[in-house]
Design a protein around this nucleic acid. Structure first.
Lengths: 113, 113
DNA sequence: GTATTATGTCTAAAAAATAAACTTTGCGAT
DNA sequence: ATCGCAAAGTTTATTTTTTAGACATAATAC
C-alpha cells in the first residue's frame, strides 16, 4: 500500500479573508477593526464574523473598548495563531513541491514487498 | 491613500480538493478517476463535482470511455490550468512574504503628498 | 434635542462543499 | 441464462461556510 499523503491544510486559515487578517496581524504589533477592514478590502459584517472565528480558535486576542460610535476593537495575533500560520505556510509549500507517485508505483507498493 | 494590496487568490484553486487534484495532475502525465480518488482521499461524489468544476474552468481535459462498471475517466491538466496553478502558488508565496504597512504610514499617505 | 455618522454585531440569503443515494453495466456464481 | 454483486461515476439533497445588508448604539454637529 502506498504511503503517499498530501500535507494537511488547516481549514481555518484556508480562507481568503481569515488568511489576510492573520498575515496582517503577524506583521504588525496590532491592528484595529477599521484598519483591517481597509487593508483586507472586506465588508464590516464579514470581517466581524471572521475575527470572531479566529478569536474562538485562540488565534487572536481581541480587546474592545466603548460602544456605538466610539467603540474601538483592537486585534493581536497569539503565539498559537502565529504557529498555526507558520504551519499552514509550510503545509502549502510542501503541497506545491509535491511530486505525486505514478499509479503503477502505488500499485506496485500495494502488492510489493 | 495607501497603495497597499494583498495578492489576488484564485478561488477555484483555493479549495483543498481542487488544489490536490491540480497538484497531482501537474506532476503526472495523467491520472484516472479512481487513482485521484485514492490519493486525494475524497469521496467519489465530491471528486466528480470538483473535476467538473475544473474542467469547466478550462483547467482540465477529461476523457471518458465506457459506462457503468467498465467506465474509465482520465484527467490531464491543460496549459491554462498549469499557468493558473503557478500563478496561485506565486500569489500565496507573496502573501506569506507580505509586510503590511502600519496604520500610521497608511494614514500619512492618505493625507500626504 | 434631533439628525447624522462611525463602529460593530446579528441574521438572513447565497454559494460552496460534501456525502449519500442512485444509475449503469460487467462479472461470477448457481 | 439469470440473479445478484460490485465498480465507476453522476445527481441531488443536506450541511456548512461565506458574505453582505439590516440593525443597534452612542458620540458629535447643528
Amino acid at each position: 500500500m502506498s504511503t503517499f499523503k498530501f500535507p494537511v491544510i488547516n481549514p481555518l486559515l484556508h480562507n481568503e479573508l481569515r488568511l489576510k487578517i492573520m498575515v496582517a496581524l503577524d506583521s504588525l504589533e496590532s491592528a484595529d477593526f477599521v484598519y483591517l477592514c481597509q487593508i483586507t478590502d472586506s465588508t464590516r459584517g464579514n470581517l466581524s464574523v471572521q475575527i470572531t472565528t479566529l478569536k474562538e480558535a485562540g488565534y487572536l486576542e481581541v480587546s474592545k473598548s466603548g460602544l456605538g460610535r466610539f467603540s474601538h476593537t483592537v486585534c493581536r495575533i497569539t503565539r498559537k495563531g502565529h504557529d498555526a500560520l507558520k504551519a499552514y505556510e509550510q503545509g502549502l509549500r510542501r503541497m506545491f513541491e509535491q511530486r505525486v507517485p505514478d499509479k503503477d508505483i502505488v500499485e506496485a507498493k500495494k502488492y510489493g514487498q
